[in-house]
């Protein structure tokens, strides 16, 4: 490419100018923050980092985060695969609308997501009040946090799976049917292996988003320390209380999770291609 760009691409000078501008921009916006995370982690060695992460509150926050994330990922996976199959393999009136609605959460502010859920499931709404009278508490409790996380991560699995299902076509599934496989057998033995990489990619994406969600969860959780506090909420709370080391240790843990997810996603993307 480098040789060919000499023929038609920009001249050598503009090539270097572009490169320097882009690298400088990415240095200040992206690379330095990453370096800072690493530096903060190892500044005082790994000992204090682990100490900060193994306090009772931190461990509890980890626990809450994972419970909420696992529920959200499970729900979004089932919904995502089902909806992707509906969109690609079936026809029904209103398909265009369903297709558009799935992308809706991308355009909604996390805070608005939280507000929306409070308005329906909160104690002062008629439905939420009725549920609370029957002993079901959604807002300021785990179910509400799961709902909020499902909302913000809703399109991720669908959008990962749809293109692969389309590309795969339905001939393999039809072949399985003519060979005697039922719906469930066809799904489990042909469809799932066919979308495996894309599904894994969507799930990791969804998991990363679920672990890192802040705004929507901040609204619906009530931010009750030691009860509904997730890791992201813990980061904010410790920071506001001037406990920087604790905030940074948790932030670093989250960043590491993000970076690992990112690498796994890249790997799965390459595999899917």
């Amino acid at each position: 490419m480098a040789e060919r760009s000499g023929v038609t691409g920009p001249s050598v000078v503009s090539k270097y100018v572009l490169r320097v501008v882009v690298l400088a921009y990415l240095l200040f916006l992206l690379v330095l923050p990453v370096v800072l995370i690493g530096w903060k982690t190892f500044q005082h060695g790994l000992g204090p980092f682990f100490d900060a992460l193994t306090t009772h509150e931190a461990l509890h926050a980890f626990q809450v985060t994972f419970i909420v994330a696992l529920w959200a990922v499970a729900l979004n996976t089932v919904f995502g695969v089902g909806t992707a199959i509906l969109l690609v393999r079936h026809r029904f009136p209103g398909k265009r609308i369903l297709n558009a609605v799935i992308d809706l959460p991308l355009a909604v502010s996390p805070v608005v997501v939280g507000l929306a859920l409070i308005l329906v499931y909160g104690r002062f709404s008629s439905f939420g009040g009725w549920l609370e009278d029957h002993g079901i508490k959604i807002i300021f409790s785990t179910p509400g946090m799961v709902l909020a996380t499902v909302f913000v991560a809703l399109p991720l699995v669908v959008r990962a799976v749809v293109p692969v299902l389309e590309e795969m076509g339905d001939e393999q599934e039809q072949a399985a049917q003519t060979l005697g496989a039922g719906r469930w057998q066809t799904f489990r033995r042909i469809t799932v292996p066919g979308i495996r990489s894309a599904l894994a990619y969507g799930i990791v994406l969804c998991l990363a988003r679920a672990l890192g969600e802040y705004g929507a969860v901040a609204v619906v959780s009530g931010r009750l320390v030691g009860q509904t506090q997730t890791l992201t909420l813990y980061v904010e709370e410790r920071f506001q209380n001037f406990e920087q080391p604790a905030a940074f240790a948790a932030a670093t843990a989250l960043a590491l999770i993000a970076i690992v997810s990112l690498l796994v996603i890249k790997l799965l993307q390459r595999k899917a291609d």
Binding site: T178, L179, G180, Q185
Partner: peptide, 30 residues
């Protein structure tokens, strides 16, 4: 599934994630 026909598709519809053996064995395993 219940007509007991063998169908061969123009573009083979090979089960990409299975070996040749497993492809052929599929109907028998079912």
């Amino acid at each position: 599934q219940r007509r007991n026909v063998g169908f061969v598709f123009q573009h083979y519809a090979a089960f990409k994630h299975m070996t040749v053996f497993d492809n052929i064995a599929f109907g028998l395993q079912i």
